[in-house]
């Protein structure tokens, strides 16, 4: 028997970026409005439920400053008067669509003008989704004693807003929780520039990252790349990334850095040499600091491509400058954040 699978969907509902996405500009030849996006999304969600009766679904919305659960197939309110049975529609689809649309409408109504500036709470939604998966995996394994516990969980992030460097550490922590739970994170960038952090999230959890070129064919993208459960993906050529941006954000200014300085004790990342590590309070010799400062490249703004650049560690304890463009770099940073 093929196993049921769980899909957690994190939908970016940032009003500012949806406005940008729906307006036709020189760079945005095929505008996609939130409304048509949602109709594509609902069909995709229905397809997931259609594939198997036991498939479960949870949808989370990312709003300015907060995150909300839009729908969960496990906590279904059956006695809802709005969901009167209809002879022409499969009832679970109807309940799903109605609930998602209603919750989105409720929350979007409540948005005020002040909310436009606040960045979306992506991390909150991602964390809630992981907690939700954790709950269903633990309860289902307790219930069935491991025999049907393989629900093959995965998360799909539909993002329109750019990275916020402030959320680097929490995102990395979420990635590591996902790895621990064996959750695959798929990322679909519907609008906007490539997201460094989400690329890493997809790469580190074995998911796929897709930047949509033609927004009008969104449904076909979603169906072909994100509908197959991880179980059968080895049979299919699902899109993978050939280029991944592994840059990390520094712990001091939350800036994405090309070259960082890593504390040799706790592996915290800094954009400039510091006398005392802010995480573990290790003091570095003044000599090392001077040497590192002298060796820093003249340009302070990070440039995109840099050749591998590893400074040989002189003496310990010192802060070793490394190119934070390697897997090690980002993992080290996240391990640090986990404490």
């Amino acid at each position: 028997m093929d196993a049921a699978s769980h899909l957690g969907v994190v939908v970016d509902l940032s009003p500012t970026h949806w406005y940008l996405s729906s307006t036709r500009t020189q760079h945005n030849a095929r505008p996609l409005s939130l409304k048509s996006f949602l109709s594509h999304l609902l069909v995709f969600l229905n397809s997931h439920i259609a594939c198997k009766d036991e498939n479960t679904l949870a949808v989370f919305g990312v709003l300015p400053g907060r995150s909300i659960m839009l729908y969960s197939s496990t906590s279904e309110s059956s006695g809802n008067p709005l969901d009167k049975a209809d002879a022409n529609t499969y009832r679970p689809f109807k309940v799903l669509d109605a609930t998602v649309m209603r919750t989105i409408a409720e929350h979007v109504e409540n948005l005020g003008p002040s909310d436009l500036e606040i960045p979306g709470e992506l991390v909150g939604a991602l964390t809630k989704s992981l907690c939700h998966i954790n709950r269903i995996t633990t309860t289902s394994s307790a219930h069935a004693n491991g025999q049907t516990a393989s629900i093959d969980p995965r998360i799909l992030i539909l993002s329109v807003s750019p990275d916020q460097s402030l959320s680097y550490i929490p995102i990395m922590n979420s990635i590591f929780s996902a790895q621990k739970l064996r959750v695959t994170i798929d990322v679909c960038k519907v609008y906007g520039s490539e997201s460094v952090f989400l690329q890493q999230a997809a790469h580190l959890t074995g998911g796929s990252y897709l930047h949509i070129d033609r927004a009008d064919a969104l449904l076909q993208y979603l169906t072909m790349s994100f509908l197959p459960p991880p179980g059968i993906r080895q049979l299919l050529s699902v899109p993978t990334q050939d280029k991944i941006d592994f840059r990390a954000a520094c712990f001091c200014h939350k800036r994405i850095v090309d070259i960082g300085f890593v504390c040799s004790v706790c592996l915290s990342i800094f954009c400039q040499p510091v006398p005392v590590c802010s995480t573990c309070r290790t003091k570095f010799p003044i000599k090392t600091l001077q040497r590192l400062n002298a060796a820093r490249p003249a340009v302070t703004t990070p440039t995109a491509a840099a050749t591998p650049y590893i400074r040989s560690p002189a003496s310990l304890p010192s802060s070793n400058a490394i190119k934070v463009g390697a897997v090690n770099g980002s993992q080290a940073a996240a391990r640090n954040g986990l404490r």
């Binding site: 069909v43 229905n46 397809s47 259609a50 009167k84 049975a85 209809d86 002879a87 022409n88 529609t89 499969y90 009832r91 689809f93 109807k94 669509d97």
Partner: peptide, 16 residues
């Protein structure tokens, strides 16, 4: 398609 998007007049999911 109709099953997934809903609608139509077939009444094939049972008339309540």
């Amino acid at each position: 398609r109709q099953a997934i998007t809903g609608g139509g007049t077939t009444g094939s999911f049972g008339v309540p």
